[in-house]
Design a binder for these strands. Structure first.
Length: 301
DNA sequence: TACCCGTGGGG
DNA sequence: TCCCCAAGGGT
């Protein structure tokens, strides 16, 4: 039986390395500041879905000034919401946030729910956003899994270079295992895992040399083996319906007066694709057609 | 599950 | 230039 004087050096759990680093180094993002309401957190999470922090900051700040409560946003027109959303991309997120605000105002007394299952019933709120609101707005002990966390866990816990295909349930279990019992501390660990993935443990050129977690990182210990798993096919953009919809919407956002179809026809030469995209914008409620045939930004309730 | 949905910056 | 990526959700 081993009884040497040297006790096996306790490898500090990931959380113990990440917490002090996060407390000292976390970026000063506006929605992290004291006094941010759960509504403010929720708005930031919607905007941050697939959109970089730098582009969200100014829009979020203005948004919270104009619509500090869900009921305030609910009272705005969809067109005003879409214009305020500006060029954050994926404008259907703005419509869903608008709809979620109405549900919160009318069915939850203007208070953002704190329960994950209730949050997930809101339009545009999926597993990630529901958990992010519960953890960051209400300090709940609730595993939060986004693309950053998946990458950090893949590396630090499993020694793989990248996360690979989604393994939703397993990711939740993995993160849950990293969380301390204390609720607010657990919420900070979730934020810290995301922060680490965003600024240190990045997809390309991770900064392992200054990583606070490298002492507990399986990938680092293994010598940074390259990722060998399946890669998702490139998405592409040029020539897609997404690009055409973006151009059409760009016209409608920038005009206060309804426009003739000829104005929209000018943004894309392929008539069939252009008409298909315009129709899809109508279906999505992002655009609407007046009785006189002209078009404008969607104004639905 | 795979694909669709915007936009712009960096390597 | 081109490709990859960025706090996902809906279908």
């Amino acid at each position: 039986m081993a009884r040497s004087a040297t006790v096996a050096p306790p490898v500090p759990p990931l959380a113990d390395l990440i917490l002090p680093w996060f407390d000292a180094q976390a970026r000063d993002l506006p929605w992290r500041r004291a006094g941010t309401t759960p509504w403010g957190v929720m708005v930031s999470e919607f905007m941050l879905q697939q959109t970089p922090v730098a582009r969200v900051e100014p829009v979020w700040t203005r948004w919270m000034t104009d619509w500090p409560l869900p009921s305030a946003l609910a009272a705005a027109s969809r067109a005003d919401v879409l214009r305020a959303w500006g060029k954050l991309g994926y404008p259907r997120r703005a419509v869903r946030l608008h709809e979620a605000a109405r549900v919160i105002a009318t069915e939850h007394d203007d208070v953002v729910p704190s329960d994950v299952d209730i949050l997930e019933t809101l339009p545009g709120v999926g597993s990630y956003t529901a958990r992010a609101v519960a953890a960051f707005a209400y300090r709940r002990r609730c595993p939060v899994v986004d693309t950053n966390v998946r990458r950090v866990v893949a590396r630090a816990v499993h020694g793989r270079g990248a996360a690979g295909p989604a393994r939703t349930k397993a990711d939740l279990v993995d993160v849950e295992a990293l969380l301390p019992a204390d609720e607010p501390a657990a919420a900070r660990v979730c934020a810290g895992l995301m922060e680490l993935g965003a600024v240190i443990c990045t997809a390309r050129n991770p900064l392992c040399g200054v990583c606070p977690a490298r002492g507990a990182c399986a990938w680092h210990a293994a010598g940074h083996p390259a990722y060998t798993g399946p890669r998702r096919p490139p998405q592409g953009y040029a020539g897609t319906d997404r690009q055409v919809r973006g151009r059409l919407l760009d016209v409608l956002r920038d005009t206060s007066m309804p426009v003739e179809k000829a104005v929209l026809d000018a943004v894309w030469s392929d008539a069939a694709q252009r008409d298909r995209c315009l129709d899809s914008l109508l279906v999505d409620g992002l655009a609407e057609q007046l009785a006189d045939g002209r078009f404008r930004l969607g104004c639905a309730p």
